[in-house]
Nucleic acid binder design. Sequence first.
DNA 1: GACATTTATTGCGTATACGTTAATTTATAC
DNA 2: GTATAAATTAACGTATACGCAATAAATGTC
Lengths: 232, 232
Amino acid sequence: MANPPADKVGAAPKAKSNTQQAVRTIKQMILENQLPAGSSHLESELAEKLRMSRTPVREATLILEAQGLLEVRPRHGVKIVPLSVDDMREIYQILTVLESLSARLAAKKRFPEEEFEAAEAAIRNMDIALETDNREAWAQADETFHRELLRLGGNKRIATICETYNDQARRARALTLYMRPSPTKSNDDHRRVLEAIRNGDFELAQEIHTLHRVQAMGLIIDLLEKYKLHAV
Amino acid sequence: MANPPADKVGAAPKAKSNTQQAVRTIKQMILENQLPAGSSHLESELAEKLRMSRTPVREATLILEAQGLLEVRPRHGVKIVPLSVDDMREIYQILTVLESLSARLAAKKRFPEEEFEAAEAAIRNMDIALETDNREAWAQADETFHRELLRLGGNKRIATICETYNDQARRARALTLYMRPSPTKSNDDHRRVLEAIRNGDFELAQEIHTLHRVQAMGLIIDLLEKYKLHAV
DNA sequence: GACATTTATTGCGTATACGTTAATTTATAC
DNA sequence: GTATAAATTAACGTATACGCAATAAATGTC
């Protein structure tokens, strides 16, 4: 069974059509703040930047609009949607409850130990990143852990939704990454969630993860308010 | 202040561009089973049916694909995605947890009594529909109640997600509407949820609604399995 | 100088044309 | 009769053209 060509973690692997490619690169440009929140861009500008005609970029913007990353405003260009503190609250509420449900669902199953390897590795990587105070590495491992949780939960739609809203929240997380205190407690939470899943303690798994996410939300929202980052 | 032309309840009111119109009518055709689950349709066929060129219908299919109602399969036409029992389980898990969160969020606020009017009316309408055994009317009022819950919760993104997945589940609900026993208990649940919201008892509101949804899910899934409706 | 009205510009919505490529059919070899 | 290969068909992906309508600019009026 030949696997499809392996790709970078987290990146959408397929990019056959120009439309798909446009979706990927525009999304990336948004997440990397090359297209800053609140800025507007004409279809023709984007087309020029991406070296293709208007048609595929136009199709891409429709898809990205459906994902909530931008807004198509006729005659004003596509606007990269800025996120207010309230928006962040909305997003984190959703992530909290869906990921926690995922933890519960995972705990209701029995997995062979190797299924936990990736999650364990993510936790270890977070430990290492903490010791060396490498926050980028920590954030990346953290994302991996959360993604693993969604995989173990087994509900594909939950995974899709969380991915979408994670994308939306990413800018704010990147912004606050260096403002927050060293995230030592997170690792503890993750370990306990994973342990609860192993033990089939679904109530506990859900509860711990909920608490974990609620705290993370509180932290990030406090930072955004404190530093007057009203829209990112 | 002249209102925009009033539209049917629940339908998206705006339809300026052909693309938007195509989204609406194709969605409607799917929900009404004019385009049955599992069937495929060429872009050009749809364009002809909708009396417009390929471009706007093509854009519409991209949007509808993002909403999970259909799948664009190059050279095979767009396929109306059929939902298996497992898909229904996925969807109901999401609706359960998000609506229940919405109930919790609503309970944490204080509303003037008139804010509950629509929800109260929906409950009353369900009572009336039960007495006259009018299931369509019941289903419609039920939807209204759930929509009100999302409105009261105040998280726009939750409302959007639930709307999307409600659309996906609608066919299955329509199918089982006349198979299930008379839904008398639902009204009781709804009343209690609303009461808990009034009282600010957020834990209770969330809990009751969760139970309510879990039971509804169990019922519908049993029916789908019993009648061997493996894909709708 | 402020405001209304006309004109000009431009960005988008839609149709259409066309090359590409996958699916299908036909032909050929075994 | 089956399997492989070649030829055909057709659906899609993309580019392009063009008119419309919304915005901006310019002009005129008070």
